[in-house]
Amino acid sequence: MMALIISIGAAAVVYAVSILYAAIGEIFSQRAGIMNLGIEGIMLMGAVSGFLTVYHTNSLALAMLAVICTGAILGLVFAFLTVTLQSDQTVCGMAFLIFGSGLSGFIGKKVTGIATAVKFHDISIPLLHKIPVIGKIFFQQDLLVYCMYIIIPLSIFYIYKTRPGLILRALGENPAALDTAGIHVFALRYAYVIFGCAMIAISGACITLSYTNFWNEGMTGGKGWIAFSLVAFSRWNPGFAALGALLFGGISILGINLQIYLPGIPTQFYSMLPYAATVVALIITTGSFRKQHTAEPAALCQKYDREGR
């Protein structure tokens, strides 16, 4: 039984991390007032660029560099469209979704279904991995998971406890006020959108460089949308996003195990569980019956034009 709990827990952590990079990237982007609906497309571009690099060079370091650069370039284009040209963010996001899905399939066509020799392997953290249950769940993971353990507290600290974090929150609430204070709204929005897209691309790389060691078209399988829904669920807080991702990952994995332990129930019911949990969680965290403010940045999705003030 304990082995089962460890296995479900460890798998839930891996699943959670693969969507958390994207969710945290999107939190930063939305906190800056820019909504990016193209997460799935950018994840796929990250996944294929990382896979192609590792396929040709056998270097995970170069692959991660390629992933980050791919995300950053896409972020730059997205920022140009939404910040400089002030195009509709929803339309641009959908365009990126389709563009990324199509282009990744095109450039990865020749390496579809081929396995690479190199991928991120699990590393046991000395001493910590010996802690009963928790050690095996949290400290026998790969490098991308360990990086996330640092990114979560760091991003919470940055957003809520630092001056740049305060500016970031203001950027999504009232960019005009920041502009008046002499802070360059456009440059900051560019920076956060580029950072967000780089993080989203890493999420894609988790799938081709850590979760598996092959590429196939559309293999993110809707994870981008789960990451997107996590942002609202988490109330734009990376800590809650981590909890939500673990919840979603845990329920997904639990469903498969329940097929063995409760075989009488139709398996479609188990497949439905994570989505039902997401709907319930979204209602609880964002429903209008709540007295608390939903935490959605007030200027999210709104064009900012200096001349228009």
């Binding site: 979760y211 399988g221 479609q268 497949s271």
Partner: peptide, 12 residues
């Protein structure tokens, strides 16, 4: 027997 209830899902 375990079902993925999907034609293609790497995670599941």
């Amino acid at each position: 027997l375990v079902w993925a209830n999907s034609w293609y899902d790497v995670d599941i």
